[in-house]
Write a protein that binds this DNA or RNA. Structure first.
Length: 423
DNA sequence: TCTGGGGTCCTAGGACCC
DNA sequence: TCTGGGGTCCTAGGACCC
């Protein structure tokens, strides 16, 4: 019998920080979103102090200081690196692995003869803790939606010790009743409000709800959730990562901008990142969108996007830069303080797909030169870490860059920051 | 003063076709 | 006065996820 397992890192970002800095272990810490905006992760100690998720940092700053909570900017190169390590360790313990997010994995595992997966899960858990200093939670069930629920139960039930097998209980409904609709995977704010209005409060009640009514209001997504709650398998563990359908780079500014030059510079920097990402994924775009907006919390909101379709897909930074800088004029408005901007590469296709036949006809030295230049820049940047070589437009002073005042070191990815241990 | 970023999937409705 | 039906493709926007 096959079991579906959901494994995730507990308080992942906070655990990563505590793992590289022993001074932080056992202490209340919170991690802030980009721009040091909101609280997006908390250590258990911070959770115990009733610090909420998602609230703006500036509103809580004083209270955090009083309570002695350490706040850190998010350090994605650290979390990304820890994630890669976690995933490669998990591989040896699971048959199929689908990396679902930076700290979550779906896996499929065969049950042993006695059908008891607890010994396997306990061993895996301690192996990961020994290797990375990170605690994981393991939810086991017969499909993805239920594995998510099992993981949730593993975190909330005192008796579970981080592992819960929902397919190995004889009173499943009692457990489903413990789970509020809001915390079911795929049920968000809007849907849970609608369900609660209808008197549906928990997973058991959603499972037993009128099927027609669900289909009508929530479409196939709702239908699928209900079917999985009933025990069907609608979603499979996808081992092979599908190629991306869009690539986006966007940021809030450290301080708002009003000048066209600044907007252009920001968009250019995001474009350079987006194009490099595209080449890394072996993709080309034929549809480019840029956007900007004021703060969502200002009295008068301005937002605008501009879009261009391309006849031929491209991954060339210089080609895309030219387009973006033209489009920038369309979205710029001097009357507003712009708080955020971004670029989107859509309509992505695999690079090798087009090239082979078309190159014979469209072969020209300019495009070959530009390709060689791009390849050289990419490889130099890879070798010397990012930004070794870039475009002139990125050089002027940037007043608008995001704030990351509380950043930890890149200890696991940069030899210069390797921790020193004094014995 | 200060409120994240990067994705996916689905649906409704318009444009267009025969 | 009477004015088709059925299909596809594309896009924008909603909802959700971590």
């Amino acid at each position: 019998m096959e079991a579906i397992v959901l494994i995730d890192g507990n308080n992942f970002y906070a655990s990563c920080e505590q793992s590289i800095n022993p001074n932080l272990r056992g202490k209340p810490i919170v991690i802030l979103s980009n721009n040091d905006g909101c609280i997006i992760a908390r250590s258990p100690e911070a959770r115990a102090l009733k610090i909420e998720m998602g609230i703006p940092y500036f509103k809580e700053k004083e209270r955090l200081n009083q309570l002695g909570v350490v706040a850190l900017s998010s350090n994605y190169s650290l979390y990304g690196d820890m994630s890669r390590r976690l995933m490669s360790l998990l591989k040896s313990y699971c048959e199929k692995l689908e990396i679902y997010s930076i700290d979550e994995v779906f896996a499929s595992v065969s049950r042993p003869h006695d059908s008891n997966l607890y010994p396997w899960a306990r061993e895996l858990r301690s192996f990961i803790y020994q290797s990375l200093g990170i605690t994981i939670t393991i939810g086991i069930a017969e499909n993805k939606v239920k594995a998510k629920l099992a993981n949730k139960l593993a975190k909330t039930l005192n008796s579970s010790a981080g592992i819960f097998d929902l397919a190995n209980v004889n009173n499943e409904n009692d457990y489903l009743k413990k789970i509020s609709v809001k915390s079911i995977w795929g049920v968000g704010n809007k849907t849970s409000k609608w369900l609660i209005d209808k008197g549906i409060k928990n997973a058991k009640e959603l499972k037993d709800m009128n099927e027609y009514e669900i289909k009508k209001k929530l479409g196939v997504i709702g239908q699928r959730i209900q079917l999985e709650l009933k025990g069907h398998k609608c979603l499979t563990v996808e081992e092979i990562r599908k190629s991306k359908k869009e690539i986006q780079v966007s940021r809030s500014f450290g301080s708002p901008i009003t000048r066209l030059e600044d907007l252009k510079q920001a968009l250019a920097i995001y474009t350079i990142k987006a194009a490099a990402k595209m080449r890394y994924e072996n993709l080309k775009t034929s549809s480019i969108t840029i956007f900007t907006r004021t703060s969502l919390y200002s009295n008068e909101i301005y937002q605008k996007s501009a879009h261009k379709k391309l006849l031929e897909a491209t991954d060339s930074t210089s080609t895309i830069l030219k387009i973006i800088l033209d489009l920038a004029i369309e979205i710029y408005n001097p009357n507003y303080k712009l708080a955020k901007a971004g670029v989107l590469m859509q309509d992505l296709s695999l690079s090798d797909y087009l090239q082979k036949t078309i190159q014979l006809y469209y072969y020209d030295t300019n495009s070959m030169k530009s390709r060689n230049l791009t390849n050289t820049i990419d490889s130099l940047n890879k070798r010397f870490k990012t930004e070794a070589l870039s475009w002139g437009i990125t050089l002027n002073k940037k007043k608008w860059e995001m704030n990351r005042r509380l950043l930890s070191d890149t200890s696991t990815t940069d030899i210069r920051n390797i921790p020193t241990i004094i014995i």
